[in-house]
Each structure stands twice: as structure tokens, then as C-alpha cells.
Design a binder for these strands. Structure first.
Length: 951
RNA sequence: GCCCGAGUGGCGGAAUGGCAGACGCGACGGAUUCAAAAUCCGUUGUUCGAAAGGGCGUGUGGGUUCAAGUCCCACCUCGGGCACCA
């Protein structure tokens, strides 16, 4: 392993740790690992079983978020997380763990398809080229991945199982009593045995086949719905709610998105809303991500309440049933089904006009809350169930049909929107809670239960007023929770309402009108009824296409019906199958699955990538992902990725995993037990006077201002990207410094979870450190190992053990930046010792090499070999600190006077408190400072410091 | 508007409530060199001072404490998420 090309320049010693030397070393060790299959992790069972290697080691499953193989290749920001997980995995191998670390590719998706449309090149060709380039770039980084497990979602034997999971979901329903998914046949049994009654109460045997199928289909966890969807003509496909930005545009491409009705496959993720929220408490995730998921799911607890009208009850959902007595009017969504029958003759013209306007304005316009409130009176009145008051019924577009029941009871005294509406249209406002005096004081008005002077609604805890009828009263001081519970009980007793929970989360639109995705394993019969393709027919392969274009659509064309590319492949679209009643002709589903499908379960396939009989061997899944203790969710031990998938990938994959768990296919309840959000590496970009980006690496800084070609430019900070001309690639770093220096720099820049700016100029610092380290072990001229079995000074030995203890705990906590500085400090001290003419103590450098190995694996392997070891350093145990060397005999105590350090005192570590005080009082500087002052107090923090308080 | 997260030297960043600025970059000075690069040694928060030494310093203003970058309250700025959600 030591025959490297000598560096080209004659003035540089032959064995200096230069970029050229590093590159040679790195290439050789990468080959070594590949030949020796160093990172192939043994499985306990299944096709990759090596049970004897599994035995006696704890396991660790580390996963990076699934990358999309972009055509642009990697820039230095991309590998940050991969390096972090690699360092951690290598560290854990040295701590005795059986580590599974692999990286696959989320290779279906829009960019490859858009590229195919533009160039006519098959997306597979392009995707494969991108993957090989990315594999090449990552191999050069020296990542310890098990390459056998590098799956791609576009592989036929991968998407076979994506389709299989789809059919599992299609073949199940959610039992709301058991709070879990069950096979759909259980539901058929329940209906046919009479344990469960049919929707209209007829017996199961009296129903026609079609009627039965309708009932069953309506219970499936994935179902066809003809409902409003997010239609994005610019992409030629619909999008999930999570893929639409707050501005009503597509997350990808920023095209306009329109609401329209289309028949789509929809995943019943809402059935899992409660478990998706509740189980967050059992996960080791960053709190902000949990919060984002909670907010996205948006559980609100309240009550459904029915208000009687002449044409039937209006049902509302409210989170504040305790304010029912203050409901002075109702507001219905313009699309509410009762509007038609409620509206009086006199109001009809106005109402129709308003409804037309509301329909014309897009969702986005309606959501613009800076607008003034609009609305129209229907002419009808409803009865407030708690006090019998006749209250007017209005329609207004701020009430959305898609949330709750599409109707609200308006309590203007307690809700700001209702308050605004009431003031605008002069509707009455009745207080149900008396705000505290401080509230009135803040608003500069006299306390009054009359709302006439109130400038805004009062939301909060207050004494209840005006809230009683003959049977129930809330009046007086009481908590909101009590009041809600009292009124809910009363409502239930009188059959006027009941406690309910609603969610913001909507079901997941799962169809995409594209080509480059998994085909649905679904066919339709002549009646248009969907059937599952038999498992034996999987995978349903994508047909070849010559032309990948969806029909050309204007991004603003909201009305034209989309025709997916697969609809044009007539020979593929029609298929003859025997689904139990003889061979018949069926038509295939022509939509494809969204990109999220493959990433919903890929981590499971890492476990058993070559299994042809199951998506994963259950024993293998249990070993790598099973719960570690009763009550533990199980799942990946460490999942690292960016925060941008907080409500997309991380919500969808949890949902799929829970379905698989319910059906008994996995033993883990959650896919990712511990989540770590890495920061981003960003970069400066520069623009000239015209606002054009200029090449960032050509910009010169002088005295805090920046220039390019002699022209002043302005600096901005953001993502690396082509358009900003500020990309730095790993390849440039490999050439200039080698992979180990690059890895070390990325890890040293700051905490892994924090975003930070890239600064090529700083990389040199880590290069110098490795050079000094190298020079301490290797003779730069001869390449000979300098380490000798000599005794080293006690102080250096103590420093080593302190370093071991610190690096060990830093690496365990993913704090690589501080681990690196500890190694640099130790190396600096070692350098001084050696520069003073001493030999290199083997006792110091061997543990140092072991400690640097996870960070700079090629460097570590090479030095380990040069130190005379024949085995790879990968599984050499991490050094252990000697506790006896961590405590020192003497300590330096800072002495503070009134909190300011005035002196330092070296004392024996065993000095008692009184002795310390005596020594402090004898100190010259202390005597000067305290001279003539009264000592009020003396604080001694054992082993840490002394503080004297004087007056 | 609501909810998170973050503000520390010229820069990236360290600091279980206990010596603020570890480590690295940059800058400055020195050694080596014909010279440079590389390497090695040293200085480097700011301010007053010739020096010894002192004052001030972690976004701003208050507070708790013997002691606050760290805890509490209010505010400012930046980044992110959600947004007429009943």
C-alpha cells in the first residue's frame, strides 16, 4: 500500500502529505475496501445471511435521506450529511457495532422526465448516467457503504415491491374501533356475517355484486375519488396538498395550481391522523419537526353542534362549544348544500350573485386575508340550541367547504374574524366571557360586559357571563376545559351535538398524469370498476415510449383535460387477465404513482435488497429495525437529512410504515426512530452593477469590498447553484486537497445541524493539520515510520487520554467539529515535543490514528499500515481513556473578586475547602484587592474556582 | 398575524450557570531561503497606558444570582414553517 507516485515538484519532499500523495493513497484504499468487501454488513437471515458474523455484536442501522440523482452532479453542499453518517458509522464499527450503511437512489421523478421531453432521450438513459456519475463522485469520498444494497426506485425488482405495497394498502381498510388497518376480507366477513351492518341496513346477501363492491371500495385505504384536486397544467399533473406552496404554486417549477375535479387514486392517510400525531411523542426527532407535523395534521378537538332551521339542521364544528351562548349568527360556505333551500326569495338574487363571484375567484384569492370581509344574508334564521335565539344565517367566502362542516357558528365576542364580520355588517355581539381588567386597561376603555366599545374580540380565559339557560349554566369563574365539558355533556343529552375531533390533514392525492413513475397495478373492467392486478403479474412494467410529452398545455390553462402519456400506448393499455372469472379484456390505469412512493419504504429494501420472495425477510427486518424494548417504536437508528421533507416524505413514509405494521409485514411501528436534521452548506454569490451573477471564485476581496475584473460587485448569500455561478464541486476539492482533507473540512466547519457558508480559503487549515500529523508519524523524505516505543512525558500522556475521552463522547453525539479541534490540540502538543528533538512515541500516535480514522479513513488506514499493522483499521477497537489519567494531581484555580478574575492559584487536587481559602487569602493579589474591604462571602466551587465577595 | 429557530472577534465557530473567544482561516512580526513557496516560532476582542496594569465587551433594555453567552421578562434583526382551520 505504499508505492505512491512521488510528487512532481523537486522542492517538495517525496513523502509529504500533498494532494497528489493523498489521491494515490485514497484510490488504493478504496480499491482495498471494495476487494475485501469491508463494508458489506452481514444479515441474520435471507439471501445475504451470514449469521456467524452477526453474532455477539450490537447492530446499528444508519440511513441518509434518499437522494435524487440530479443531472447537475454534486456540489460540496450535498455530501455534508453523507460524510457525517459515514464518520458516525465508522466510529460505531470501531465501538463494536454491526453497522448497516447504504445509499440508494430515488430515481423516478419529474426532472428526468422533463429532460426526456426536451431531448427525446429516454428518462432511463439519462437517469442511469446521472446515477453512475453520482456513484463515481461519492466513491471518491471514501464512504463506507454496503454497495450491494444500493437500490434504485426505477429498478424493476424494486418497483415490483412498491406495487406490491400499493396492493397491500388497496387490500385493506381502517378499523376505527381497533385503530388499525385490517385486510379487506375481514370487512367482507363482518358484513356477510352481519356483525357489521351495511350503510342502508339491508342484509349483505340482499345486495347486488355492484352494491357490495361499492361498499367495499369505499372502505379501502386507497380509493378512487372524484374530488377537487390541485391541477398544475404547467407540469401536466395534479399535485398533493403538500406539494403546493402557500402561494398556490407548484413546489417543483413554481407553476400556477388550480382547483378542479378529477378522478384520482387517494390514500386514506387521514385515518392515521391520530396515530401519526400521538406517536411523535415516542420518536427521537428534533422538536421543530415534530411541531411542523403536528401543525400540518392540525388536530382540533371540539364539538359538532346542530342548529335547527326550517329546511333542516345546520351542523357546525366548533373548538369553543363553551361560547355557544354568544353565537349571534351563522355563516355558511357559499358552496354549502343547504344554501339553495335556505335562501329566501327576496335574497335569492344577491345570494346567487355572491356565489358566482366566490366560485370565480380562485382559492388563492379567497385565502388572501388582507381583503375586507364579504358576505350576504340568506334571509333565513336558525335556532341557537342553547338559548333558542333566532339568529341570521349568512354566507361568506371566508368559510371553507373543505374544513369542518363548511358552516360555522359565529361568536363575534370571542373570535376576531367573526368580530370583523359582525362589525362590517352590523350584527349583534354578545360577550360570553368577561375579560380581565388588564385587557380593558390595555385597550384604554372602561370595563364593560357590553361589547359596544370593544375594539376587538376577547380570546382567552375569563369569567363566564350571559351563558345560562334553564338547565345548564357556565356563568362564573371556571376553566375553559370545564366549561367545554359541561356544555358538551348537555348537548349530548339533548341530542344537539357531540364532542368531535377534526383535522387539517387531507387525504393524499396519489395519481400523477406522467410517464416516469411506477405504474399502478390496477386494471378497469368494462364497467369502469377497478381491480387489483394479481400478485403473480407483478411488476407491471412501464412500456417503452418514443415521445414522452404529455399533450402541450399552457401553464395557465385550467380547463383542458389531461391525457397522460401512458394513455397513448394502446397495446400496453389493453390487457387480458383472468381475475377469477375467466380471461377477459381489461384496461390498465394510465396514471403513475408520485415520486414519494418509492421513498416511502426504500430503507426497508436496504435490509434485504436481493430478496425475490418478499419485500424484506421478516427476521432481517426485526434484526435491523425491530423495537429495542417494549414500547419502543423500532425503526432506523439514525436518519440524517434536510428539514425540507418535514411534512412530505416524513409523513408519507410514516403512514405507509404503519399500514405495513398493522398488516403484520414489519415489526417496527415507525420507519425512522431517530431523526437528525443536518444544516446546509451555502455560499456567497456576487452580482455586478447590472445585477448579473459573476463567477464567485474570480471575485477579489479588499478592505471589506468586492470586485470582479476591476468592477465593484455586491455580495449575497444563498444556495449554491448554476445561476449564481458559485458552485464548488467535490471533484475540485479532491484534486486540490484530496478527499480526506475535504471530509475533515466539512466536518470541522461547525455543528452538523447548522447551516454555514462554504469558504474554500479555509480548507487549507485542515490540510496543514493532516500534514503535521503525517509528518509526526512518517519521515517526509524516506517514507519511513518514525514511531518508536519510547516513553513519553506524563503530560502528553494525560493529554492523550483527555483527548480520547473527549473525542469519544463528541463522536457519539455527532459533534465532529469539537472532536477535530481536540485532535488538533493534541497534535500541536505532540508536534512541539517532536520538534524539540524527541522521538515520536508510538503510545501517542497509534490512538491518534485510530481516532482520526473515522474522519479521514484513507489517511487512517495508510498510517495504520505504516505503523506496522496488517489488518484494516475499520474494526480495530476505538481507544479507551484511562480514568486514572483524566484526573490530575494539581489544579489551577481562578480566584475571583466580585465575579472578576484577579488571580490564579495552583493547588493540589486533594486540597480541602478551608485550605483553599487559606491559600487564597495568603495570595498577594488577593490581599491587595481585599485590603481595607469587608469580606462578605467566600464561595469555593470544588476543583473549579473561588469567588470572594467584598464591600 | 401566529408558531418555531438563531444573533459571540475581520471570518467559520468553542464554552455541564463558574477563567468568554478553544480550534481553524485571515492579518501582523520573526526564523529558514539568493529570493519566493512550503515549513517552523510568536502576536492578534476592543480601548486607555511607555510599561506594569486597568476599563469595556456575547443583538437591545431590564431582572434573578456570589457568579449570566448560558436562566427569566420585554423588545429588535435575520432565517424557517403555517396562515380567514371555525
Amino acid at each position: 500500500m505504499s508505492a505512491h507516485e512521488p510528487p512532481t515538484s523537486p522542492s517538495i519532499p517525496k513523502f509529504r502529505y500533498s494532494a497528489a500523495l493523498a489521491s494515490g493513497i485514497e484510490a488504493q484504499w478504496q480499491d482495498y475496501w471494495q476487494q475485501h468487501r469491508t463494508f458489506e454488513a452481514p444479515n441474520p437471515a435471507g439471501p445475504l445471511a451470514e449469521p456467524q458474523k452477526v453474532a455477539g455484536r450490537p447492530k446499528l442501522f444508519v440511513v441518509d435521506m434518499f437522494p435524487y440523482p440530479s443531472g447537475a452532479g454534486l456540489h460540496v453542499g450535498h455530501p455534508l450529511g453523507y460524510i457525517g453518517t459515514d464518520v458516525y458509522s465508522r466510529y460505531k464499527r470501531m465501538k463494536g457495532f454491526n453497522v448497516l450503511h447504504a445509499l440508494g437512489y430515488d430515481s423516478f421523478g419529474l426532472p428526468a422526465e422533463q429532460h426526456a421531453i426536451a431531448t427525446g432521450v429516454h428518462p432511463r438513459t439519462n437517469t442511469d448516467a446521472n446515477i453512475s456519475n453520482m456513484r463515481r463522485q461519492l466513491r471518491r469520498l471514501g464512504l463506507g457503504h454496503d454497495d450491494r444494497r444500493s437500490v434504485c426506485t426505477t429498478d424493476e425488482d424494486f418497483y415490483k415491491w412498491t406495487q406490491w405495497i400499493f396492493l397491500q394498502i388497496h387490500g385493506s381498510w381502517f378499523d376505527t374501533d381497533a385503530r388499525r388497518a385490517r385486510p379487506i376480507n375481514d370487512l367482507v366477513d363482518e358484513f356477510s356475517s352481519g356483525r357489521r351492518s351495511t350503510p342502508d341496513g339491508r342484509s349483505w346477501s340482499d345486495l347486488s355484486n355492484d352494491e357490495r363492491a361499492d361498499i367495499i371500495d369505499s372502505h379501502r385505504l386507497v380509493y378512487l375519488s372524484d374530488a377537487p384536486v390541485n391541477w398544475c397544467p404547467g407540469l401536466g399533473t395534479i399535485l398533493a396538498n403538500e406539494e403546493v406552496t402557500a402561494e398556490g404554486r407548484s413546489d417543483i417549477g413554481n407553476y400556477p395550481v388550480f382547483k378542479r375535479n378529477m378522478r384520482q387514486w387517494t390514500m386514506r392517510i387521514t385515518a392515521y391522523a391520530d396515530r401519526l400525531i400521538d406517536d411523535l411523542d415516542r420518536l427521537d426527532w428534533p422538536e421543530p419537526i415534530k411541531l411542523m407535523q403536528r401543525n400540518w395534521i392540525g388536530r382540533s378537538e371540539g364539538a359538532r353542534v346542530r342548529f335547527a332551521t326550517q329546511v333542516g339542521d345546520i351542523e357546525v364544528f366548533t373548538t369553543r362549544p363553551d361560547t355557544l351562548f354568544g353565537a349571534t349568527f351563522m355563516v355558511l360556505s357559499p358552496e354549502h348544500p343547504l344554501v339553495e333551500s335556505l335562501t329566501t326569495t327576496e335574497q335569492r338574487t344577491l345570494v346567487n350573485q355572491y356565489r358566482a363571484e366566490a366560485a370565480a375567484a380562485g382559492d388563492t384569492a379567497r385565502m388572501d386575508d388582507s381583503r375586507e370581509k364579504t358576505g350576504v344574508f340568506t334571509g333565513a334564521y336558525a335556532t341557537n340550541p342553547v338559548n333558542g335565539a333566532a339568529i341570521p344565517v349568512w354566507i361568506a367566502d371566508y368559510v371553507l367547504m373543505g374544513y369542518g362542516t363548511g358552516a360555522i357558528m359565529a361568536v363575534p365576542s370571542g373570535d376576531q374574524r367573526d368580530f370583523d364580520f359582525a362589525r362590517r355588517f352590523d350584527l349583534s355581539i354578545v360577550a360570553t366571557q368577561m375579560p380581565p381588567d388588564s385587557w380593558f386597561e390595555q385597550h384604554g376603555i372602561e370595563p364593560s360586559v357590553s361589547c359596544a366599545m370593544w375594539p376587538e374580540a376577547f380570546v382567552g380565559e375569563g369569567t363566564y357571563v350571559n351563558s345560562a339557560n334553564n338547565e345548564v349554566t357556565l356563568d362564573g369563574p371556571r376553566s375553559m376545559a370545564d366549561a367545554k365539558s359541561i356544555i358538551n355533556t348537555w348537548l349530548a343529552e339533548h341530542n344537539l351535538g357531540e364532542p368531535t375531533v377534526t383535522y387539517k390533514l387531507r387525504d393524499w392525492l396519489f395519481s400523477r398524469q406522467r410517464y416516469w413513475g411506477e405504474p399502478f397495478p390496477i386494471v378497469y373492467d368494462d364497467d369502469g370498476r377497478a381491480h387489483a392486478v394479481p400478485l403473480s403479474e407483478l411488476p407491471v412494467l412501464l412500456p417503452e415510449l418514443d415521445d414522452f410529452r404529455p399533450q402541450a398545455l399552457d401553464p395557465d390553462d385550467a380547463v383542458t383535460e389531461p391525457i397522460p402519456p401512458l394513455a397513448r400506448v394502446e397495446h400496453w393499455r389493453t390487457v387480458t387477465l383472468d381475475l377469477g372469472d375467466g380471461p377477459r379484456s381489461y384496461r390498465r390505469e394510465v396514471n403513475v404513482m408520485p415520486q414519494w412512493a418509492g421513498s416511502c419504504w426504500y430503507e426497508v429494501r436496504y435490509l434485504d435488497p436481493t430478496n425475490t420472495t418478499s419485500f424484506v425477510d421478516s427476521e432481517v427486518e426485526k434484526y435491523w429495525m425491530g423495537p429495542s424494548a417494549p414500547g419502543h417504536t423500532g425503526g432506523v437508528d439514525l436518519y440524517v437529512g434536510g428539514v425540507e421533507h418535514a411534512v412530505l416524505h416524513l409523513l408519507y413514509s410514516r403512514f405507509w410504515h404503519k399500514v405495513l405494521y398493522d398488516l403484520g409485514h414489519v415489526s417496527s411501528e415507525e420507519p425512522f426512530h431517530r431523526l437528525f436534521n443536518q444544516g446546509y452548506i451555502q455560499a456567497y454569490a456576487y452580482r455586478d452593477a447590472r445585477g448579473q451573477a459573476v463567477p464567485a471564485h474570480e471575485v477579489i476581496e479588499a478592505n471589506g469590498s468586492y470586485s470582479w475584473n476591476g468592477e465593484a460587485v455586491t455580495r449575497e448569500y444563498g444556495k449554491m447553484g448554476k445561476s449564481l455561478k458559485n458552485i464548488v464541486t467535490p471533484d475540485e476539492m479532491y484534486d486540490e486537497y484530496g478527499a480526506d482533507t475535504f471530509r475533515l473540512y466539512e466536518m470541522s466547519m461547525g455543528p452538523l445541524e447548522v447551516s454555514r457558508p462554504w469558504n474554500t480559503r479555509d480548507v487549507i487549515g485542515m490540510q496543514r493539520f493532516l500534514q503535521r500529523f503525517w509528518r509526526n508519524v512518517v519521515d517526509e523524505d524516506t517514507g519511513a515510520c518514525k514511531a518508536q516505543d519510547v516513553t513519553c512525558p506524563e503530560e502528553l500522556r494525560r493529554h492523550l487520554h483527555k483527548c480520547i475521552a473527549g473525542v469519544d463522547s463528541d463522536m457519539d453525539g455527532l459533534k465532529f467539529n469539537t472532536a477535530i479541534s481536540k485532535l488538533i490540540e493534541l497534535n500541536n502538543e505532540l508536534t512541539q515535543w517532536i520538534n524539540a528533538g524527541n522521538a515520536t512515541p508510538r503510545e501517542i500516535v497509534e490512538p491518534m490514528v485510530q481516532m482520526i480514522a473515522p474522519l479521514c479513513p484513507h489517511f487512517g488506514e495508510e498510517l495504520w499500515r505504516r505503523l506496522g499493522h496488517q489488518e484494516s483499521i475499520t474494526f480495530v477497537p476505538f481507544p479507551v481513556a484511562d480514568p486514572a489519567l483524566l484526573v490530575s494531581d494539581t489544579i489551577e484555580l481562578p480566584v475571583q473578586i466580585n465575579g472578576k478574575v484577579r488571580s490564579r492559584l495552583v493547588v493540589s487536587a486533594s486540597t480541602g475547602e478551608q485550605e483553599v481559602i487559606d491559600a487564597v487569602m495568603a495570595d498577594e493579589k488577593v490581599r491587595t484587592a481585599t485590603n481595607g474591604k469587608q469580606i462578605v462571602k467566600t464561595i469555593v466551587v470544588p476543583g473549579r474556582m473561588v469567588n470572594i465577595v467584598i464591600k
